[in-house]
Design a protein around this nucleic acid. Structure first.
Length: 256
DNA sequence: ATGGTAGATACTCTA
């Protein structure tokens, strides 16, 4: 079972790259973030042609999450239980092959101290409460997506530059650690302990060419699923293509 | 060097 997460930065603008990657990598499941596309415009037929059913939870211009799957998604949930009506589309959950997959696009936060920063911290708190109320650590649970937080120093190209800044500030990392302490393991770190393993590089200033990135896209799993974790890799290849997303796919394989 | 790039939308915001 191969489950991938990828912030595609517009599923419509990225359609050729996503199709190309699906053909090459052939995952069973692809969780996408920042689809930036309402459900009516989601290119489900293009993915159906490749053998994927799709679930989209989008909105115009910003945010939006979607799940592509070789088999049909069960128990699909859109948003968190305490979302206000009209809340931003950032959570899409589905059960696939007995695994509860929770696909999230965690708020970016813009800048430490900004209004959006406090929205991010509050949102992370609600995500933990969502797990407390809806899921059990004894189940096979997988939380993945663009977390917009680098958990450790080794996940940041220059920790001294990034310390105290958005995506790496202490309150963000603490809020994320609180979610992890529900009963999740960073599946990537089960298999890779090296630094300089990034999933996102700014479009600007030749960041990718110089490998000035952050590891902010994650696959976290509950203990029963951790026991089935065979590998997790960041696929940098599509970041080298024409018109790339600024994020690379993260691909997790599980024994069945 | 407080820049730089990209996407969606509509004369700017978000990342």
């Amino acid at each position: 079972m191969k489950i991938a997460t990828w912030n595609v930065n517009s599923v419509l603008a990225r359609l050729p790259q996503v199709v190309r990657w699906l053909e090459a990598a052939s995952p069973d499941v692809l969780c996408m973030q920042e689809t930036k596309c309402v459900d009516e415009k989601f290119p489900g037929e293009e993915f159906a042609r490749l053998g994927y059913s799709s679930e989209s939870f989008g909105q115009a211009a910003y945010n939006g999450v979607a799940i592509l799957s070789r088999v049909k998604c069960e128990e699909v949930r859109r948003g968190m239980p305490d979302d206000e009506p009209g809340a931003q589309s950032r959570v899409l959950a589905a059960t696939i092959g007995g695994i509860r997959i929770v696909n999230v696009y965690i708020p970016n936060g813009q800048a430490v101290g900004a209004e959006k920063y406090f929205f991010k911290l509050e949102w992370l708190k609600r995500l933990r409460a969502f797990f407390d109320s809806c899921y059990q650590t004894t189940d096979r649970v997988l939380l993945c997506g663009d977390f917009n937080v680098a958990p450790e120093d080794r996940d940041v190209h220059d920790p001294e530059v990034w310390r105290g800044r958005i995506l790496f500030s202490e309150p963000e990392r603490e809020a994320l650690a609180k979610i992890r302490s529900w009963g999740l393991v960073d599946a990537f770190r089960m298999h890779n302990s090296e630094d300089k393993q990034y999933s996102w590089w700014d479009y600007r200033a030749g960041a990718f060419r110089r490998n000035l990135g952050l590891r902010i896209d994650h696959v976290w799993v509950s203990e029963p699923l951790a026991r089935q974790s065979a590998s997790v890799v960041i696929d940098k290849e599509p970041r080298r293509w024409e018109k790339p997303s600024d994020h690379a796919p993260v691909v997790a394989e599980f024994t069945t």
